[in-house]
Computed example of a mutant assay.
Amino acid sequence: MNPDHQAERTRIRQAMDRLLTGRATVSNGSLTAAALAVEAGVYRMALMKRHADLKNEFFERVRTETARIPEDEKRLRRTVAQLKQTVADRNAEIQELRQQITRRTLAAAVLTHDRPAAPATNTSNVLPL
């Protein structure tokens, strides 16, 4: 590990401590990966790619030390709940449409099958259906 990499990791750990204690100096103090990157003075993608273990450690510490769920996770949970509701609504709508198709098909069959016989006509070229 080169010295710059190690120094970057040290800055990230110090930034974690500041964010978790509510003493943010550079960032807005939110408990997100973006705020951690700003607080540590590293690029967000560097945190996500090179220091993914520290990012995961940060979120684990957020859960255990603050008894809070990270904002990203809250947003994802809301999105998942909305999508599940949308799928349930669509499935109910599909079921209702299938039932309507069945009812209308049966109604059409009854109407065409029980049609009264056509009155007798004097024309020989007209055939009843």
Rank of each mutant, 00 (worst) to 15 (best):
R115S: 12
A35S: 11
E8K: 08
M1E: 13
K49D: 15
A67L: 13
R18P: 02
T66L: 15
R9L: 06
E71C: 01
K49G: 09
R103Y: 12
A109K: 05
N2C: 07
A88K: 06
A7V: 03
A88F: 10
H51E: 09
D72N: 07
T86Q: 15
L31V: 00
A81K: 12
T112A: 14
N56H: 07
K74M: 10
Q100D: 10
R77Y: 14
P128R: 13
G29E: 03
T21S: 10
T123Y: 10
R78W: 13
P128C: 12
R50D: 15
R115I: 15
N125M: 10
D114Y: 09
R98W: 04
T112Y: 08
A15H: 06
L127D: 11
I69D: 01
A52I: 07
G41A: 02
A24D: 02
E60P: 05
G29Q: 01
K74N: 02
V26S: 04
A37K: 01
A35I: 00
A40G: 03
D4P: 05
A34N: 03
K74Q: 14
R77V: 04
E73V: 14
E65I: 12
K74L: 11
R68G: 00
A120P: 13
R23F: 13
Q85S: 13
L54I: 06
T79E: 15
I101R: 10
T121K: 00
E73I: 12
Q82K: 15
L36W: 04
L106Y: 09
A37H: 04
L106P: 01
T25K: 11
L76Y: 11
R75I: 06
P119N: 08
Q85H: 11
Q82A: 15
A33G: 14
N125H: 14
F59H: 04
R68E: 06
L97N: 10
V42A: 03
E39F: 11
L20M: 06
V38P: 00
T25M: 07
N91R: 07
S27H: 04
D53Y: 05
T121P: 00
T64N: 13
R13T: 03
T105F: 09
E8N: 06
K49W: 14
V26E: 04
E96H: 03
Q82F: 14
T66F: 05
L54V: 05
V87Y: 14
S30E: 11
S27F: 05
N122F: 12
L129A: 11
A118D: 15
V87H: 13
D4M: 13
D72Q: 09
Q82S: 15
V110T: 09
V80F: 12
R78Y: 13
N28F: 01
A40S: 06
N28A: 07
S30C: 03
A120K: 10
Q99H: 08
G41Q: 04
R98E: 15
T112I: 09
G22M: 01
I69P: 02
V110H: 08
R23P: 06
V62L: 05
A46P: 01
T112Q: 14
T86V: 10
Q100G: 02
A117K: 14
A117H: 09
I12L: 01
K49Y: 15
V110R: 09
A40F: 10
A24W: 04
V110A: 12
R13I: 06
N125P: 01
R98C: 10
E57Y: 05
I12W: 09
E8H: 07
L129T: 02
D17C: 03
A35F: 00
K49Q: 15
